[in-house]
Amino acid sequence: MVFAYDTEVSLVEAAMLVNTVDSDGVDALADPAGLQVWLAQHPFTGVILGNADEVAEVRAVRTQLRRLWQVADRDAAVPIINDLLAAADARPFLTRHDEWDWHLHVTPPDAPLAQRMAAEAAMAFLELVRADDWGRLKTCAADDCHDVLVDLSKNRSKRYCDDGNCGNRAAVAAYRARKRAR
């Protein structure tokens, strides 16, 4: 299934948000400065307060989003997605801005950042449910990594997270094992 570009972006951003806590428990969103760094790489339109309360709200959304990678199937995901949409008071509308052509926003630009993030992610997950493509949500195959990923490849073969290190380490380990076996 080919998803709309904004759906793919929202899915990947949700994964990147979940991955702001690393395998050692270090939280990249520990303070407003960390949130600003993350938002510089994953921009959201609208009001951004940049205070401790906003960070706490975004971290709460992150926890809800992680649950979506932990559920067994789309049927179990639906209540979580519906809760995210309801809590965000989602009201879809079409808009275009910056380099984006017409696309869907589901909250007004003055809604709290955490609500906007939750609603955008929920709408993207909704598309996975509708397409019966829940299997695209995966956890990194590396033994020492708990990052999540969205497999948007044609053949659904992606196994490692987007940081690049896990896949590289696995490839090097496999190469060295092959060399030792010779």
Rank of each mutant, 00 (worst) to 15 (best):
H105P: 00
V129T: 15
E99P: 14
R169W: 00
H97K: 01
P112E: 11
G167C: 11
N82T: 10
V129Y: 05
A90V: 09
S157Y: 09
N165Y: 04
A77I: 02
A114F: 05
R96C: 07
F125V: 08
A111V: 02
L113F: 06
A131G: 04
W102I: 05
C166S: 11
A131C: 14
A76W: 14
C161S: 10
D163T: 05
A86I: 03
V106L: 08
R74E: 13
V78A: 07
E99Q: 15
E127R: 15
A131T: 01
D73E: 09
E127A: 14
F125H: 09
G167M: 08
A76T: 12
P92N: 10
V148T: 10
L137E: 06
L128A: 04
A76E: 12
E99C: 10
V148P: 00
D151V: 12
D163S: 08
Q115I: 00
A90S: 08
V71C: 02
M117D: 01
M117I: 15
Q115V: 05
A77G: 05
R169I: 05
V129C: 13
R116Q: 04
D163R: 12
L104F: 03
A111R: 09
L85A: 06
A142P: 01
S157I: 14
T107Y: 06
A114I: 03
W102N: 00
C140S: 11
D98F: 11
D147A: 12
R67H: 13
P112D: 12
D132A: 15
R130N: 15
D147N: 15
I80M: 06
R116L: 01
H105I: 01
L149F: 03
C161T: 11
S153Q: 15
L126V: 12
W69M: 04
D75T: 11
S157H: 14
A142C: 05
M123Q: 12
P109N: 07
M117Y: 06
C166H: 00
I81L: 15
A121Q: 12
C140N: 02
L128T: 08
P109V: 10
N168E: 10
L84T: 00
F125M: 14
A121I: 02
T95F: 07
T139G: 03
V150F: 07
R91L: 09
A111S: 11
D101H: 13
L94S: 09
T139F: 04
L94C: 07
K138I: 08
D133G: 06
T107E: 06
H146L: 04
L84P: 02
R159I: 01
A121W: 03
D98N: 15
L149S: 04
C161N: 04
L152E: 14
A90I: 03
A142I: 02
H105G: 08
H105E: 14
H146T: 09
D163F: 10
P108D: 08
H105Y: 11
D83L: 14
S153K: 14
P92D: 06
W69P: 01
Q70I: 02
P109Y: 07
D163M: 09
D98Q: 15
R96Q: 10
R74G: 05
A90E: 00
F93H: 14
N82S: 11
V71L: 06
